[in-house]
Design a protein around this nucleic acid. Sequence first.
DNA 1: AATGAATGAGTCTTCATTCAT
DNA 2: AATGAATGAAGACTCATTCAT
Lengths: 204, 204, 204, 204
Amino acid sequence: MPEIRLADLKQMERNTRRHIILDAALTLFAEKDFKSVTVREIARQAGVSIGTIYNYYPNLTELFLDVFLTSAEEITRLLNLTDPKSPPDLEKVCEVYITYLNDNMTFYQMMSHFMLGGDLSADATRKLDDIMKALMDRIEAALAAAGIRENLRLTAHALFSALNGIMISYARYPGKSDDDIRRHTLRLAKIIARVFKTASPSLV
Amino acid sequence: MPEIRLADLKQMERNTRRHIILDAALTLFAEKDFKSVTVREIARQAGVSIGTIYNYYPNLTELFLDVFLTSAEEITRLLNLTDPKSPPDLEKVCEVYITYLNDNMTFYQMMSHFMLGGDLSADATRKLDDIMKALMDRIEAALAAAGIRENLRLTAHALFSALNGIMISYARYPGKSDDDIRRHTLRLAKIIARVFKTASPSLV
Amino acid sequence: MPEIRLADLKQMERNTRRHIILDAALTLFAEKDFKSVTVREIARQAGVSIGTIYNYYPNLTELFLDVFLTSAEEITRLLNLTDPKSPPDLEKVCEVYITYLNDNMTFYQMMSHFMLGGDLSADATRKLDDIMKALMDRIEAALAAAGIRENLRLTAHALFSALNGIMISYARYPGKSDDDIRRHTLRLAKIIARVFKTASPSLV
Amino acid sequence: MPEIRLADLKQMERNTRRHIILDAALTLFAEKDFKSVTVREIARQAGVSIGTIYNYYPNLTELFLDVFLTSAEEITRLLNLTDPKSPPDLEKVCEVYITYLNDNMTFYQMMSHFMLGGDLSADATRKLDDIMKALMDRIEAALAAAGIRENLRLTAHALFSALNGIMISYARYPGKSDDDIRRHTLRLAKIIARVFKTASPSLV
DNA sequence: AATGAATGAGTCTTCATTCAT
DNA sequence: AATGAATGAAGACTCATTCAT
């Protein structure tokens, strides 16, 4: 079955190059505000031409969305804490999420941008929704694994919201270093985790 | 003392015109995404020239910041629920805040933008911090008025975060109308309020 | 002589594929403005790759020219009205030509483009000239068949010009439907035909 | 009334700069195919910035339309041949028009482009229609002044068409110099003029 | 103080053509 | 012969800000 293999190879090569572009974008996003990253820069960073970018993505928005998707998948993996010996703790879940956001402010910027802002195509909107839903499912699963049983979905919604809010409120805390912010946001995450762990069953 | 009076009049006129510009911006923000509002539009809406805008604000960012400040002050007023006969309920505080965000997505967009994003001047940063601090103080005061006593500041932080997070997570909930979103976000706000009311004393 | 046959087959296959490309282009031109048809679209419509197009034509212009040639040949056939029983009428000739232009605006667009516009290669120029000359010959022949004898060539030139001008003047007549335009242009064609039939002998 | 004068002056200055841009475009059009003229070139030629171009015209199409309008007005003036002592001859009218087209192929290119081609805004379409109608009115008036009385409008349509057609058919006559083409097109114009002068009354 | 025309760097995106496979 | 990914020059257009009047 040589044809299949050839097709597979081509697909792999395509995925590889797509990944090169993706990584280039991620690298730039780590350096600067995502709204100020240009196609030209991404192309240069990826070592391809501008046109090639558009060979893999119909426009910049879709590329950004893909970056976002990739990050979301990474978070999902990180939140996969099911260890038979030590069952996942809710605090641990919150810590992982907030740590990721601290390390990847671009992800959070993008989430804000896409959720609040822009005109997305129907297709892009669907993709975004899927991403967010998957992320939410993961949070819910983590909650379930952590022992929460009642009002699971609603609790997940509220917790997810609460965690997201931490960053918007403290990403720019006056006169604090990155490290201070990390500590403070993690502390808030811990509080929220505890609050939800004890309060949810009877109240929601 | 005619000079003083004249100076006062001039100052009043200056404030008036400043307000006209501010209102024009607010009006436009109510209609559309704040990133797409241009100086030209604001000038036209205010009935002044572009140059005049720059006579009152050094740049667009400062104007936007002023708009943000104005909104924040409005929220602060709305959160001033201290009524001797019926002490403010925590749920009510959360409801008022979330309702305001639903009605003024631009405010939330700006908060995201300024908190996560841009290069603000030292002066602008200080202003922003003051605004956020005042808002936080108000939330804290509302919490205090609602009877929360222990770990007040930290609880306020966590609650504020949680409320802010609601909008970023659900402003674009798939397939839901504005009204559905309003209902859902209010419901989450209520949950969070209850959770914090019961859980906070012993846990934080 | 198997080699000859094989060569013939190859040539036939080549012609066939060439025709597939040509037809694809024609189909697209029937749908939209010829300036907005891209190689990619033609390739997709023809079910071949972009590279294949360039295997049959050195560049897009040559392909467009070939399309134009094909259309011109079709017109030539349509203008072949010599019927022994009912000799061709000049009005009929004009009607056929204008009807074709109404039905194939792209042909007219191309004629304008090539005649007025672009940088054609020496080879392309020669081809274009041949096409136009053949078309003119046909008009002249039709005129001759219609009984015109004096100043035949010059009359043909003037008539051909007059007919071509009809479309440029009325293809976009304000507030008129395609059908209105068709009627109006045909009416003008009839007028022109009559004018030339009576006036030409003594005046030219 | 100093205000009025000031306003007048401003308007005059505005018109002047508008004219500078217009002239720059015209100059470039005289040098090359109008489809290949860019904003950058026009700006450089006019000695203004790119942004200034867009201060006077919302987009390139509107600028091109204005150039077209200006040319059409010039033709209209040229066709104003009413001289009490020697009444305008139809042949003269045709000669003037064809001479202008020979000298200003860009005008003809634009007429083709706008009439056959592009997506014009509602406003632009109205302008174009007005231009064409004014031109047609002028042709009709010239016909009237030349003594044509019967079927005036329809004759004007047919004549205008016929004249326009001359250029599309012969702007690229094979192996002929510009001068040859000028002579040939003028000769055809003369033929058409005579044909219409004698044939129209009874036939149209 | 008010004006608003001028600026121009910088943006995304298109698409005919090439060429290694 | 067929493929189609890669190319990159070139395009139109935006808009915060300045500054001469």
